[in-house]
Design a protein around this nucleic acid. Structure first.
Length: 398
DNA sequence: TCTGGGGTCCTAGGACCC
DNA sequence: TCTGGGGTCCTAGGACCC
């Protein structure tokens, strides 16, 4: 059935910024270019960002002199020089520090990354207006929406976008061009950094089948491990499995999907607009807290999470009706509790009250390392019904 | 060597209604 | 008194992604 898409010959690109956060930092601190740089740990506050800008990344930023600072942070990203030492994103900072004590540690500055994110996306849409946002550092681009965009298999258009991004931001990116999103995403990784890769349906056996299944967007560590148990390591090996057998092993939906992607088939459209489903705020404590012994501290954090969430909702113009909490215990096990209200709201007091009721339903004997608050069932505030009366609130919450 | 924060989507079971 | 299905909503957990 996906042959129709293949015949119609869509032309889709996936653009991925090269080592995005690290590259933004190197724009500010070019003297760090050859050095191992790790980004992670505490977020940069407005004050510390100002200090950082004034002082340049100080030698005090080196791991070996920051033992107290590393806390429970993880590596958000690392420059290619740091990766040489085995440092990977997601790794505990403590471990990264052991691998490369002389690395420079920079706190993440998401405001700055978002600013560059807007810049590079604007550079793209000035040339190709139909893009699908896939987070801070990547997009899909509909080449068919650009007159002549699919000519020469999209190569000239991809080049001009790559050039425009560099001129506008000083940053490099890699682009994959293919007949669908699945293949475009794979292709953008083929030649990083500054890559430009065309991948045609007929290249499947030669270029895609040798890759590990894990390379497919949607096959994570768990699925990859299960496939490995059956001796399926590559996408080609996956493609040799019978559809029926995959469905038996992985369920109707997932099994069918595994079969489709192994043959490079993907009919998903470019989605240019979407509304958020949920918003949340969570924090990991510097040390594990106990519900009774650290009651005051925990309560203060809880309230401030609810206030931040309420502010985020209002700032973006949303209300929601399912309030939830998330806990992570000292043994790293997580749990969630949720409650759906009869009305939509973005009110901090209502959120705090409802989240409090959720929290009461969770076991609180163990110490906690993380607390989070979430609002689901979002609706644009303008589209929501009337605020509940005091009486309705009373009924539901008190 | 212990493991961030912000999301989406899927599944499964139970409640409830027709 | 005992019995059907189907549909929708809600909750909880888990996989996955950036």
């Amino acid at each position: 059935m996906n042959d129709a898409a293949a015949v119609s010959g869509r032309c889709i690109a996936h653009l991925d910024m090269d080592a995005f956060y690290a590259s933004v930092e190197l724009l500010r601190y070019p003297q760090l270019k050859a050095q191992p740089v790790v980004i992670g740990g505490r977020r940069r506050t407005a004050a510390s960002a100002k200090a950082a800008a004034a002082t340049e990344p100080p030698d005090a930023g080196r791991f070996e002199r920051l033992a107290d600072y590393l806390g429970r942070g993880v590596v958000t990203t690392a420059t290619y020089a740091a990766r040489e030492f085995g440092i990977r994103s997601g790794m505990a900072l403590m471990q990264a520090a052991r691998l490369c004590p002389q690395a420079v540690l920079l706190p993440a500055d998401f405001d700055e990354y978002r600013r560059y994110s807007r810049l590079f996306k604007a550079a793209i849409t000035a040339i190709a207006p139909r893009i699908e946002d896939r987070g801070i550092d990547e997009v899909y681009i509909d080449f068919d929406a650009v007159p002549g965009g699919a000519e020469q298999q999209g190569l000239p258009l991809a080049r001009s976008i790559q050039q425009a991004v560099r001129e506008r931001t000083g940053l490099g990116c890699s682009i994959g061009v293919a007949p669908n999103k699945l293949l475009a995403k794979l292709a953008s990784e083929f030649d990083k950094p500054n890559g430009l890769t065309l991948l045609r349906a007929e290249d499947l056996a030669e270029r895609v089948w040798p890759l590990a299944c894990r390379k497919i967007n949607g096959i994570g560590p768990k699925a990859a491990a299960r496939l490995e148990q059956f001796g399926i390591g590559t996408i080609g090996e996956l493609a040799q499995c019978e559809r029926g057998w995959l469905i038996e092993q992985f369920g109707r939906h997932h099994g069918q999907w595994l079969h489709e992607v192994s043959w490079g088939r993907d009919a998903r459209e470019i989605v240019t607009e979407s509304e958020p489903i949920s918003m949340s705020c969570e924090t990991t404590f510097e040390r594990d807290l106990h519900a009774v012994r650290d009651r005051a501290e925990l309560g203060a954090v809880f309230t401030s999470l609810c206030e931040r969430l309420a502010a985020d909702l209002s700032r973006h113009g949303y209300v929601g009706r399912t309030v939830g909490v998330k806990l992570r215990y000292d043994n790293f096990r997580s749990l969630t509790r949720a409650q759906t209200l009869k009305f939509h709201t973005a009110d901090a007091v209502v959120i705090r009250r409802t989240a409090g009721l959720c929290l009461k339903r969770a076991p609180l004997q163990r110490r906690l390392r993380l607390l989070g608050v979430r609002m689901g069932g979002l609706l644009p505030a303008a589209a929501a019904g009337a605020e509940p009366t005091a009486q309705e609130l009373e009924l539901e919450l008190f």
